[in-house]
Amino acid sequence: MFSNLFHPLHGSSWYIAILGCFALAGILIAILQSLPHALRRPLIRIVTFLGGLYYAVEYFWPTHSMPIPGSPKHMGNFLTPFISPAANMLSVIAGWTIGLGTINLCQIHGKRLLHAKEGKLNSLVFFIAMIAMFTLAVLKQAHPNLINKNLYMLLFEGLYQALDSTMFALVAFFLVSASYRAFRVRTGEATLLMVIAMVVMLGQIALGQQLTIHLPDHGFWHNFRVEIIRDWILTKASSASVRAIAFGIGIGNLAVALRVWLGLERGAFFDS
């Protein structure tokens, strides 16, 4: 049935189908609007549940008894073939939401520009940069001539990459001031944190490793090489607590997902 319905159309029937879609959407909104208020929340819950149902069932449903590698039809279960179309649909929907942010930004900066508030020059810079970058990104694909490509590259390499990596590099400066200020031997916990951080730092630099390079390559004293200590800290000791924390977070994630999916969640956004 579905394969009959969902086949591509061309020409005037295409236009009719599109118009039909919009008309249906209008009717749908009208129907939804006429629903009593009490039904709204259950409806949202049902839609939420349906949204998750597909992925959950697809994952847990028994799979093909004799999977044939290389043949998509003989792998997974009856729902598996829809994974890719569903994925496309979700990313397109996510793509549309970018407009929400753009509208908000235009509101804030537009207001500043129109009312000549403080910082209007910066808002102007924002608009120019946004429009220029967007136009060139689209033009570069639609008309990939040298000018478009090179202008795009200029903005991309000269501005975007430079700004992006500079902001990231700032973290190094902040690390220095933060560690100088915060790593004081005030409490036992803070001291432990500091000492371990320093040992790991020594163990991961060439000059630090030179300190203990004269210790033998094998045997008992080998274990006291700073890079070996660092390795032990990272692989044996710290990995255990990382894993323990991860278990808790994993279960926490599962719980929140369950609550959202089953409509049990309360609080921000879900209540009203």
């Binding site: 970018i98 929400l100 942010g101 908000n104 930004l105 804030i108 700004l163 992006d164 902001m167 990231f168």
Partner: peptide, 12 residues
């Protein structure tokens, strides 16, 4: 306010 969907310009 929405700022941007890029990690570091958001941070900036």
């Amino acid at each position: 306010r929405f700022l941007t969907n890029n990690q570091f310009s958001y941070a900036a």
